[in-house]
Nucleic acid binder design. Structure first.
Lengths: 349, 349
DNA sequence: TTGTAGGCGTTATCAT
DNA sequence: ATGATAACGCCTACAA
């Protein structure tokens, strides 16, 4: 492979000049720069990342930490991240962080992240698996502040890092209020098990939002019903099925803390022979890609935008053009209610 | 940050020995190794990747190229890849390759991949965007063979690379035969536009499978109907809608070349007031995560397994323990018909 | 504006 | 089994 010397020789300049010219440093005459560029192009030269990184002390890499990439939200954010990171000249190092066990296993590897990346993007990670213990733990030098980072929809804040997300309490409140406005009174909240490693990070807050809305509507405490399910669509389905099997009146509406749960509820209701929204209304929170397909009403969060904002914040910081001078920023983006076919006024009033 | 010298000093050995001991090379006495390990642990030492890479001539990184990560299939494969690459000591460099324009734009960057990675995993990329032109193009030195790689469900083979996938023709044939067996005769094939950059790579082959099955069943040519749609769920929905608007008898079944299309068809049929499977049967190919939720019958490909097999092949190759001695392998994994609620015998015969 | 030369932290080679 | 010592390929003072 051609090295910097080859280019220097062909262009008739020193290696230092080649380095400067190719990186667009100002102290190079345009004529020289052209010559160097030409020579580099002819030889198909690209600087060796390993060498530049060693000499320059920067990795030119951003670690993106996700619980798993297959899920909808992380996928969207990572998509956005790639799209921004690449043109900015950064490599994207993908890293899974799983549940608690997982995290413990991977702690050593994650701990040497500072040597391989310039910054970290932590996406959609439940509080349980938060990177805080990883980056702030004293046994690892508590380097949180040394390595810049941004969290997106993460359960627990990482000290010293900026964060981007939505107001989960408000989102759930809006969802619940929508049902209340339609006339529903027997509304059940379906949420994920906080102990589950893959439960949506905002789940707990969203339960709060449900409660707030219900209480504000003057709902008696015994009518505020929260059902906790195992994670994912299947968890939502099962929980809903057993909810329907309970004695007493069936709820007229279900507010799920995330769309996957809501979709599980849809399946369970359909199997139980109940019509949505004729018999039961269902609303979710997330704006999941497939909510549209199944006609699920939801409070959507701007996932891609969250990702772009997060990466933008990170890049600003890395480029030294951050506003607050290193002070963590806290971005809250608005959600919006997306009306579809899964909600309607209750049949009997 | 602590360097190798610090460890060497503390352990009372040379840096060379530290390097050897920590990497598990055989020429180190157990006693020494223990001492070195201890010292390294005490100091929290990890070798600098940049330096190792420069000195060792290996990047310890695998590039994973996907059209976009948000889609289902790539997501699953990347998940599997991360899970295998990490413990093997490889970093995962995520890289988008978009459509034709995209590819052209990114060609220069992609071309310097050989300097940043030891191998490439190309996932679910339509023929149009195949990496072949990137890695085999003469203007880039035609380094295809220099950089080991594996494709997973990629449209066009990359010369010199191994490939992992399913038999797309057979998969579609199985799907079509299922409908034929149920008694359907007016079966329409719904597929993606080959010109679309995000169309499923196996689409063309799957159309072949449909034709083969139809012909084998003695279907008259005019009853072999193929509808081409724009990509994604929406494309499937629109194409199905306009199909239903056509004069003449409605088909009794739809064979979609991928599950997303099939789900689009489900939406269109529902909106048109047609019942599935009572009025129209729908079958897809893919085994998409959400097919289960919407009750879609499909011919499933083992996505995660494909990913694991691909990475395994790559790791074997990198470790020098490949079977055929550098000869590209071709793995075809079996699919399976998953019966759900979207297919049934036609109403009238 | 450009060139010179030392250093970045490891690994590999060659002795011992 | 271990140690000394070149590379590895680039960047960054510093000098010119």
């Amino acid at each position: 492979m051609t090295r910097i010397d080859d280019v220097a020789r062909l262009a008739g300049v020193s290696t230092a000049t080649v380095s400067r010219a190719l990186r667009g440093l100002p102290t190079v005459s345009e004529a020289t720069r052209r010559r160097v560029r030409l020579a580099a192009e002819q030889l198909g030269y690209t600087a060796s990342p390993s060498a530049s990184r060693l000499a320059g002390g920067k990795t030119g890499t951003v670690a993106v930490l996700v619980p798993r990439i297959g899920a909808w939200f992380p996928g969207v954010v990572v998509d956005a991240a790639e799209e921004l990171l690449r043109p900015a000249g950064y490599d994207l190092l993908l890293h899974h962080v799983g549940g608690p066990d997982h995290a413990r296993q991977r702690l050593p590897r994650t701990a040497d992240l500072p040597k391989r990346v310039d910054a970290v993007l932590l996406v959609g990670t439940p509080a349980l698996v938060s990177a805080a213990p990883v980056f702030a733990a004293p046994e690892y030098g508590g380097r949180a502040r040394a390595l810049p980072g941004v969290t997106v929809a993460a359960g627990a804040p990482v000290p010293g890092w900026s964060s981007v997300g939505i107001d989960d309490v408000a989102a759930a409140r809006i969802a619940t209020e929508h049902l209340l406005t339609l006339g529903h009174r027997r509304i059940v909240c379906l949420s994920g098990d906080p102990a589950d490693q893959f439960t949506h990070p905002g789940d707990l807050d969203r339960r709060w939002g449900y409660r707030e809305a219900m209480q504000a509507a003057g709902t008696p405490p015994e009518a505020i019903v929260e059902v906790v399910a195992r994670g994912g669509v299947d968890g939502g389905r099962q929980a809903t099925a057993s909810l329907l099997a309970r004695p007493g009146p069936t709820p007229t509406a279900i507010m799920a803390t995330c769309d996957e749960m809501a979709m599980g509820a849809l399946v369970a209701l359909r199997r139980a022979g109940l019509r949505v929204p004729a018999d039961v209304s269902v609303i979710g929170v997330d704006g999941h890609e497939f909510a549209r397909i199944v006609g699920l009403t939801t409070v959507a969060q701007p996932a891609a935008e969250l990702g772009r904002l997060a990466v933008g914040t990170l890049l600003d910081r890395l480029a030294g053009r951050s506003r607050g001078d290193g002070v963590p920023e806290r971005h809250i983006l608005p959600t919006r209610l997306v009306l579809r076919d899964s909600t309607a006024p209750p049949r009997e009033n």
